[in-house]
Design a protein around this nucleic acid. Sequence first.
RNA 1: CGGGGUAUGGCGCAGUUUGGUAGCGCGUCCGCUUUGGGAGCGGAAGGCCCCCGGUUCGAAUCCGGGUACCCCGACCA
Length: 590
Amino acid sequence: MLLRMSSLFLRTLRDDPADAEVPSHKLLVRAGYIRRAAPGVYTWLPLGYLAFRNVERVIREEMDAAGFQEVHFPALLPREPYQTTHRWTEYGDNLFRLKDRRGADMLLGPTHEEMFTLLVKDLYSSYKDLPLSIYQIQTKYRDEARPRAGLLRGREFVMKDSYSFDVDDAGLERSYAKHREAYVRTFDRLGLDYVIVSAMSGAMGGSRSEEFLQPTPVGEDTFVRCDTCDYAANVEAVTTPVPPPLDWSDVPAAHVEDTPDTPTIETLVAFANQRFPRADRPWTAADTLKNVLVMLVQPDGTREPLCVGVPGDREVDVKRLEATVAPAEVEPFTDADFAARPALVKGYIGPGALGEKSSSGVRYLLDPRVVPGTVWITGADRPGRHAFDLVADRDFTADGTIDAAEVRAGDPCPRCGGLLRSARGIEIGHIFQLGRKYADALGLQVLDENGKLVTVTMGSYGIGVSRAVAAVVEATHDELGLCWPREVAPADVHVVATGKDAGVFTTADQVCRELEAAGIRVIYDDRQKVSPGVKFTDAELLGMPTILVVGKGLAAGVVELKDRRTGHREEVPLAEAVPRVLATVRGPRA
RNA sequence: CGGGGUAUGGCGCAGUUUGGUAGCGCGUCCGCUUUGGGAGCGGAAGGCCCCCGGUUCGAAUCCGGGUACCCCGACCA
């Protein structure tokens, strides 16, 4: 491959685009790799498309090497399968829906579990056909509320999605492990740094899910990792260690006190310290039990109130809550909702008005930290009244526990008790044991060795291909511009010819042809009348791993070989230029 | 959906307060000069000043109403 810059469809920009914030977005636009076509929708230009296809190639090679087989579904899909699994409605506004000329509903696929499941059902019916793993690399459409950061979150994006089909859980476990290994190899080859974190398995029960997160401040996912052991998890999936029950024999009986004008934790703690000071230490928010009301909205539209009791020094993390109650969605409790339930006194809600057996009948779930024997100040269900010395289990119970309080840096590690630290990351891959949700919904069954019908168990595994291009940029760029790993770079070598002497160009031309003949991918800056400074700056911005300058040194018979990443440069005799580049490109493995 | 900001040539921006021929830098084109770190001089092309309505002799600018984009939050892969 030989790209000549004199005719390459490329325009580099001197300034960062005003609408870009993150480095990958700025640089990919500035270097002429992508252009925005619509909000969250991008066009690939020649260099960008080369890089994109390289990422795609690496992924494909690793999938194929693992024995997964590639298929290709349409992006334009019929409604029915998504209707069957309720995702036609569950996906909400994020689904791109359209109608054909006869008025039939269609959609642009946001993901393809349904189609894969139906395809396997269509063709296979025996345990002898399994295990099977098939994948595709396909454009996905999700009408995001807020696309951002260029390729990192688009409304149209390319995803590699795989699906595994097994006859039993042990098989699923093996398929999952194979995908995990393939992902590790893929991301290693792409030069990406990543952390594998436990993720939320959702409402499907007992299934396992892990995310590959590339740690970076521009990432959108928050995760925690342990200081001492190798535990790492998405905040949604962190489980709170349950402390042992406490002995409450010394705790005085619960008593209700007047606490006027204390509808918030802050005002309550201040009042308690003033009016009922403790001898040993001041009251803190952690001594209070905060009861937070939300409205759960089921996919079918059913609304159900829920109260979550958490220590007063913690917020309820809506993301964690929603992950736990999925597929239900969480909406704030409105004044109208309060008005409809007079037993619930806003600002003074206590366990007395909660729980299935209470007057309000609102389901009440407690944070795992609220173990039997813990002592709390909490609302007394009357305006300006709070209960003190209320002991969990002795004085109140709930309908269950829920792990939905915010996770904070410094919280204990659920595995080893060490300290958790918080960080941000880009989700570059996600592997997920789906179980039988889709197979059940769509009737994917096979006959086992006893001739009995069994429901197939599935896994789904995704890599954001276009997102990975941006992730590679985030991981590798420097202040000069892009800085591609060789596996992803649009070309191996950027040959720069400087000067006005025709000899420079004929020599550079010759070198490029020799490199191309040797199978090296070359981009050649053969532009006449462009000053050396422009060419050097462009070469650095475009980011090929090796830069070869043919210029003024030619008079002395030398050219300059530069490593883009390290900045190391070296003069080599012209005759050695091609062999040296070959050795550099082919590396130690040659 | 809440909060904040922005909208003027391909890109980055000024001009809007106080209405009066639409500007600057970069890029592009032509000519001459220049060729190792975004060169110089001279000439040129390129604009629905986001849209609709209003006020006015006259609107990028003032008024009313929309729309779009960016950031933060919410939400989501």
